[in-house]
């Protein structure tokens, strides 16, 4: 694996209209509350209250769910539904990134709210015993993107691993000459709920290296380069689900022939 580190401020990605609908996107910092709505395994509810408006939201659909001991950065869009299975309007799509600010852990009883029975998400990987069919050609240079929690490089189960697996599946079928892995960090400070947040610049390289390590295990003989880009901008990749902040925190894998 080659590590060609190129730190540079990026301004290339394009923000589309869908990603730019900031008015519809909620973004705030709050302490999460767990509601023990017992509808079976993985059925609990996560609630947060926007400190600016006092509006409580249901953020249970985040692929990385809160820890009740820590504040979360909430990013999401109000769902077009009147259903309140957890007792609050639903943000979906939504992301909740764990911050280091400690919270008083609190749990509400179900109070009659049913919660949601767990449904296996669409983004889940296939077992090795049941590999998907090879992707149809023709094959040419192509990029794949994974997304991350704020200031973390962990590839999240049933989100990041699925996106990585999609890339691996295609790479295995196409056998490119080399892979270029570029990590991005949203390192420009922003004020959210009165707090200044920014990703550590080194997160860009860290993300690239984590993904490159996984790729090197998938393709032991393939040449892999890593690059790092700070000051990541918003883009409109569909797997960011229209959440601008999510689209910034990413790794791009480019297969070159």
């Amino acid at each position: 694996m080659r590590h060609l580190i190129a730190l540079a401020a990026a301004s290339l990605p394009v923000m589309s209209a869908s990603a730019a609908q900031a008015a519809d996107n909620q973004r705030f910092i709050a302490c999460p509350i767990y509601r023990d709505a017992d509808a079976g395994a993985k059925s609990g509810c996560w609630l947060v209250t926007d400190p600016a408006t006092g509006q409580q939201w249901d953020v249970s659909q985040s692929p990385y769910k809160p820890d009740w001991n820590y504040a979360v950065l909430v990013e999401g869009t109000a769902a077009d539904t009147a259903e309140r299975p957890c007792g609050a309007p639903v943000l979906d799509p939504v992301r909740t990134s764990r911050l280091e600010t400690q919270c008083l852990r609190h749990m509400l009883p179900a109070e009659g709210y049913p919660g949601r029975p767990f449904v296996r998400p669409a983004r889940n990987i296939s077992p090795l015993s049941n590999p998907p069919a090879p992707p149809p050609g023709p094959y040419s240079e192509r990029a794949f993107t994974l997304f991350f929690e704020l200031d973390r490089s962990f590839v999240v189960y049933q989100y990041g691993d699925y996106l990585l697996d999609q890339a691996a599946h295609w790479i295995r079928a196409t056998n490119p000459r080399r892979l270029v892995v570029t990590g991005y960090a949203a390192s420009e400070p922003e004020t959210v709920s009165g707090q200044v947040i920014a990703e550590r610049p080194e997160m860009a390289q860290q993300r690239a290296e984590v993904v490159a390590l996984s790729l090197s295990r998938l393709f032991p003989d393939m040449e892999i380069e890593t690059h790092a880009v700070t000051g990541a901008q918003v883009n409109d990749h569909p797997d960011a689900d229209g959440i601008p902040g999510q689209s910034q925190r990413r790794v791009e894998i480019t297969a070159l022939f």
Binding site: I125, V155, R217
Partner: peptide, 15 residues
Amino acid sequence: VGFAYDPKQGLTLPR
């Protein structure tokens, strides 16, 4: 080995 990934480490399984 059921899957190629270790969800606890966020990595592809080692070889």
